[in-house]
Structures are given as structure tokens and as C-alpha cells.
Design a protein around this nucleic acid. Structure first.
Lengths: 199, 199
DNA sequence: CAAATGACCAAATTGTTATTTTAGTCATTT
DNA sequence: AAATGACTAAAATAACAATTTGGTCATTTG
């Protein structure tokens, strides 16, 4: 029953954090949803922050797992990118947690929400960077600074999804993929048409 | 002396808004700096907001002027882009106003600062879009949706300057230009190496 | 007498104190 | 030995007082 209790707590907390954000989620509430005494939570997690981090870690693992599964496949690099992109766009609607956190950051400025989002972003960038580096080693990509590459890739994705939606109607998935290809892949793929001798 | 008074007020206000932001700038302070009675300000501007908008408009005009001068020149499109980019990077350090406003938005969340930045961004996007459209009409660019193009262009610029600096040391100007070329120009220029027949 | 002015006021902002909520503890129960 | 919920100190919120500020207008000035 003990392991089950831990799961109950995590589930309840995950639900509540995603629904109400970090600040508005109280330990009493989590205990109630988990049908557990409040003290019980503290036998598994030292404090609210640690409980939250556990859940955040799970989200990060889930994201990495999806990408890992895809990149293990035997496919050309650009195809993998597309497929991961696809899944990310699909997954997007599922990470209510990240959504809620960024809303909370905007509205209330909760430092914990800020930290969490930074960590998520940082993990994502590190992951992308490693992937690009290994693709570069395999010769699938033109040489370049993977730190800048991964940053551009992330920013472009972010621009086409989150940022665009702030001022326009959302772009449909095909347009996003097409634009992503046009601006990112062309600049990065090793098709090397000719090296800009026009300048 | 009347026209001179107006200028005095605008100069004082511009200085103060850029230095302290919208909220922290008081009408009394502007009057003092401008060496003018507070009531005098209200013979030229209906209220604080209108005075602020006048100054914002001037910044927008100045930006447009710089770009217009450049794009009137007889040069290939991509060169113009680079030169404007150069000037923008140079100018950037000079628009303390925009800088201060975005800081104010982050720190205090002043709605006026938010509005102002949105307007600045919107003007910029409209301008870029028009420029891209006309370059496209002249056949200097490959066909494409200029709304998305201008958005990407702006976001990429923003990413390489503002956003990058949030997590790393600033990129030097040459790296910015190079990256900008690699990811934006390659995807957009009508040099058409060959149309991605690899897929 | 028209333009400029600064004392003045209502409204908004800030500072302060009272009240409530909440994270975390621990003596008691299961 | 694990689970619990009443309890407490600290933090968040609400209520209220004091101050600041945008905007007005009767008076002054050139």
C-alpha cells in the first residue's frame, strides 16, 4: 500500500499543479485529492518544492523518451526531426503543466514557475544540442556551432507555435513544418548547393 | 518661444521615459526638467499618455527613416538587409526607451509599456512585410507568405540579440550576421541552388 | 489678453496593520 | 511502524491610513 500511496500523491499533485499552477496548489488540497492525510505527503517528500520537482522531472523524462525512441530509428536526420516535431506539436496540448506554469509566470510571477520553465528549456536545449552534435559527427549535418544551432532550432519552433499565436490565428501543422524546413533545415542540412559565392 | 516650449517638453519627457520608464516618470518631473510649469504641458498634450505616444511615434519614425534611406539605395536585396541589420544592431544600444520599457514590463508589468512595445513590434512587422513584398514583386525573393517571412525574420533577429543574451554572453556582430544569413537568407533568397529534390 | 503657471483636488499608489491561509511539525491513533 | 490531522509559525491577503500623482483652473505674467 506504501508504493501505491506515493503514486496517489504524485498523481494528485500533478493534476493540481497542471490545473491551478504552483502557488495556487496547496498541500491540503493535494492530500484531499490523493485521499491521504497531509502528514503522509511529508513521509515521501521533504516539502512542496521537492514534490513539484519530482513531477517536473517526470515530464522531462517523458519528453526525452519520446525523442529518444524516434531518434533511435534508422532514418535520415531531417526525417527524424520532422517526426519529433510532429510529436512535439501533438504533445504540446498535453503539457498543461508547462502551459499553466508560463501563465502563472506572466500573471503572478511565481519564482518557482520561472525556475521550472528555465529548467525545462535548459534541458530541452541541452538535449537538442547533443542530438545535433551526434548528427554532425555522423556527417548528416553541415559543420556549425551546435549551441547556436540548437538555440535557433528551439527559438524557431517556439516562434512558430507560441509566439505566433500571440498576434495571429494559429498556423496549421503543415505550414509550421514547411516553414520550419524552409528556414531551419535549408540552413543546416548538408545538401550544400553551393557555398554562397555570390558574396 | 511657443514652439520651443513644445520641444523642451518633448526632450525632457523623452529623456525621463527612457531613463525611468513610463510609470516612474511624473508630470511634475517632466515640467521641472523642461523648466516649464506643469500646466504648460497640458496646453500641448491632453495627458501623459498622449505625450508618451508622441515620443514613441518619433522613435518609430526614426527607425523607419533609417531603413528607408537604406532600402532606397541601388543594391541587391540581401545586401540591403545586411546593412539595415547592421544599423539596427548599432541603433539597438541607442534605444534606451524600448529597453527601459521592456524592463518595466518585466519588473512592474505596466500596461502602457506593454501596449507601447506591442505597437513598436507591430509597426516593425508591418514595415518589414511591406519591404519583403516589394522585393518579392521585383523578383528578388522567392515567393512565399510575407506575413510569415517577416515574422520569422523579426523573431530570428530578436532571438539572436535579446533572447540569446538571457542565457549566454552576447554574440558578436559578425556571428549574428552570419547566422542570420545562414538561416534566414538561405531560406528566402532567390538564388535557388536547386529545389530540394533530395526529398 | 492670451499664454504660462503652480496651488489645489480627486484618484491612484504606496505604506502599515489586522486577518486569514498555508507549509510544515509532531503527539496521538491505527 | 506508518498514517493522521490538530496545531503553529510564517507567509499571503485584506483592510485601512498616508502619500503621491495626473489633471484642472483661477490667478499671474509678458
Amino acid at each position: 500500500m506504501s508504493l501505491d500511496r506515493r503514486k496517489q500523491i504524485i498523481d494528485a499533485a500533478a493534476k493540481s499543479f497542471a490545473l491551478f499552477g504552483y502557488k495556487a496548489t496547496t498541500m491540503d488540497q493535494i492530500a484531499k485529492i490523493a485521499q491521504v492525510g497531509k502528514g503522509t505527503i511529508y513521509t515521501f517528500f521533504a516539502n512542496k518544492e521537492e514534490l513539484f520537482n519530482e513531477i517536473l522531472q517526470q515530464v522531462i523524462f517523458e519528453m526525452k523518451h519520446i525523442a529518444d525512441r524516434e531518434s533511435a530509428e534508422q532514418r535520415p536526420f531531417h526525417e527524424k526531426v520532422f517526426r519529433i516535431l510532429d510529436q512535439a506539436l501533438e504533445f504540446r496540448s498535453r503539457h498543461e503543466l508547462a502551459m499553466k506554469l508560463s501563465q502563472e509566470l506572466r500573471d503572478v510571477g511565481t519564482p518557482m514557475a520561472n525556475e521550472a520553465l528555465n529548467r525545462l528549456e535548459s534541458e530541452l536545449l541541452t538535449y537538442i544540442e547533443a542530438q545535433l552534435q551526434s548528427a554532425m559527427d555522423r556527417g548528416e549535418l553541415a559543420q556549425g556551432d551546435p549551441r547556436i544551432m540548437s538555440f535557433i532550432m528551439y527559438q524557431l519552433y517556439r516562434s512558430l507555435t507560441t509566439e505566433w499565436n500571440k498576434i495571429h490565428d494559429p498556423l496549421d501543422k503543415d505550414t509550421i513544418k514547411e516553414t520550419f524546413y524552409k528556414y531551419f533545415m535549408k540552413g543546416i542540412l548538408r545538401v550544400t548547393p553551393y557555398e554562397s559565392k555570390d558574396e
